[in-house]
Amino acid sequence: MQVPAPFEYERATSVDQAIGLLERLGGSARLVAGGHSLLPMMKLRLANFEYLIDINDLHAELGYIRFEGAEVRIGALTRHRELLESDELAAVFPIFRDAERVIADPIVRNRGTLGGSLCQADPSEDLSAVCTTLDASCVIRGPGGAQRVVSMEQFHVGPYETAVAENEILTEIRFPFKPDLCGSAYAKVERRAGDWAVVSAGSAVWIGGDGTIVDARVGLAAVGPNTTGIPEISAALRGREPSEELYETAGAIAAHSCEPVTDQRGSADYKRHLANELTRRTLRRAVERTRG
């Protein structure tokens, strides 16, 4: 049995109380949400924290999927399973269901959260790629009720590093809900069900009344230090009509703008190839979805 080093544990009763604890305990404390990233690291003693602040009792406050005007707002403590099962979410952003179907297994999905996934900032995290694709922004709350909103690009500072400070909590993720016809899709190649991605890609397209692409975004995971969007692809697609050639162009851009490394999941060449292949597949699928 792998066991973590000794730590103290407290269950937060409110977001502000949790922030208060973080402020008092500083870097020796960590929030625990689903625990599916944090606890394995602690059990392997790759990470040791003196205090764990469990925020699971805040699910009523931080676990939700809301449609508010031009935004979809999802609470940081919303679980993978809730994202998977929400028909409303799947209706507007099918990319979520695509992704959740291939994230881990039911046991992990029952507990793991959207906020935890983003804050873990693992370059292979699927939901980070989804949020990048959907141009999400992150709501971060700090001491004294201070709240700031950052884009995904600002949120991910580096591998395993985010814009969330030691005394802050990620509370909500917001997704712009643009008026144009939106289609989205996600695809992942894994060596086995439940494995982390060899490479995965998400695409979202917004198509105007004239049938041309108003905006398009692609997010990749596991091919670089962070799950980043590829502005070059968006630029290449905007104003064009969807076509196989266009997907090929986008795929080629994806392949050359990522930085994969060779590891047990695959060779760098193969990952580059997948970035291309999966970009094309998801774009094609996203466009198909705009057509019902």
Binding site: R191, V198, R265, G266, S267, Y270
Partner: peptide, 8 residues
């Protein structure tokens, strides 16, 4: 024969 090896 992982996907990567097959592709290679």
């Amino acid at each position: 024969l992982t996907p990567s090896r097959v592709w290679e």
